[in-house]
Design a protein around this nucleic acid. Structure first.
Lengths: 255, 255
DNA sequence: GCGTATTTGTACGTATGTATG
DNA sequence: TCATACATACGTACAAATACG
């Protein structure tokens, strides 16, 4: 082998790279089938364990997913935003990313987003947004209702993000929001402060929605900026200047 | 939401989740050792294949890396920015993210970055930035020199990003820049336009560096915004409004 | 609804490469 | 140099899930 390549890469990674290249070269789209393991064993001339490790690598990267049974096998997966989220969450753990860091980015992106979607929201999306805003408006009694409310607050932002044609922006905002939700999931239901904060969130969401309906870009942007600042302040009070590291990273699959 | 969980109860993923949780629960840091495969087989009560798939998952996610030989085994890996890049690149492939999409985000982040690092750059970093700016200033003769120049242009931005205390911002900027470099790597050296563009980049880099030295935040921000707009324009002219993967594959018009 | 075939998921055994001391 | 400990790779077998008759 070439001495230029200092270390010997794992055979499974080499195979994974070839499979990945073939996916792109063939222009395969989500849902398309790849050769089954048995065929790959022959075509690559390696053992099944190696093929499976290669496929596992691509699966974790969000490129494919496995399907059992007849007509099954590896198939090209769509988007892979979940996998990106997982990787970024891992990054945040090691780099000791703080709540401040996340909000610096999130504020920037959310304000930009809300500006870019003004005038580009259809009625169906408006209805969904209204529904989500209303959901978080009513005060939550028990812990389960509070959890659903928290999900609705999260989804309000991802629903707006979904209105942008810039999928990268959409994904980044979803990831940042998911990181915060996940980081605070354990403690949030215990904090008495949360119910009060939730009320404030609901008001902001409702106001932002109104501004979007009026197609008032400046108002929507200003409200979003204020909303982010308030949320940031609340989390700072709750958790202080701590990194997200001590927060459990979620398992991406399974129950 | 249901897509988040509800799916494959693959044993290996469950085990991976438990290992991940234990890493975080124990507060393990990069370099720390995890139990070796044999011990995990006992403690989890599963086969070697399952443990290996679980470890492979964590390895691909950038959480651990494997080390052979005595005193080897799975050890906690640092950062994982490469893995995040890979996941985001995969995302861009499926979602047909365009150059416009990337630059919308990149402009936002780079301008924010350059503002936030004003007055926080030490002499060593300034020296490095000057070196990189000079490197791309001289016109490149052959293709290899042009490639190095391109790398220097890329590194100029990542070097600035490295001056920010916000590691998430640093990583995002690195990822966006890497995506653009990767997408245009094949064609860039062939375009006659590139040498002219490179010259312009060098000028911007030099000017931005000057503004940073003067600690003139407004000038630095304005220059960076202009720099991004120019770069965006050049890439648009070269490739038009096509998705990134089409560029990487050379399936765009304009041979 | 049921059985069967197909394909992945899990398991066990074994051999080889590789790094440590 | 050699022995040891670990990951890497291969082969086989069976279980579980799913599509199809």
């Amino acid at each position: 082998m070439s001495s230029l390549l200092a270390r010997s890469p794992k055979l499974s990674s080499v195979v994974a790279g070839e499979i990945r290249a073939s996916i792109i070269a063939d222009g395969l789209q989500p849902g398309d089938n790849l050769p089954i393991e048995k065929e790959m064993i022959e075509s690559f001339g390696v053992s099944r364990a190696t093929i499976r490790e290669a496929l596992k690598e691509l699966e974790v990267q969000g490129l494919i997913r496995m399907k059992t049974g007849p007509t099954g096998g590896p198939i090209v997966a769509g988007s892979g935003s979940q996998e990106a989220l997982q990787a970024i969450q891992n990054f945040c753990y090691f780099e000791k990313v703080t709540i401040d860091d996340v909000y610096e980015l999130r504020t920037l992106l959310e304000v930009r987003l809300v500006r870019s979607v003004v005038g580009h929201i259809d009625e169906e999306s408006f209805a969904r947004l209204q529904e989500l805003a209303d959901l978080s408006a009513v005060p939550a009694r028990n812990e389960d209702a509070r959890r659903r409310q928290r999900e609705a607050e999260f989804e309000f932002h991802t629903a707006i993000a979904g209105c942008s044609p810039n999928r990268l922006l959409t994904m980044m905002i979803e990831v940042l929001a998911a990181i915060l939700v996940h980081a605070t999931a354990r403690e949030s239901s215990r904090h008495r402060m949360h119910s009060e904060w939730s009320c404030e969130n609901a008001r902001y969401h409702s106001d932002i929605l109104d501004a979007l309906r009026r197609e008032d870009e400046e108002a929507a942007a200003a409200l979003m900026e204020e909303h982010m600042a308030q949320a940031h302040g609340h989390l700072q009070l709750m958790y202080g200047q701590v990194s997200l590291e001590d927060i459990a990273l979620g398992t991406n699959r399974g129950a």
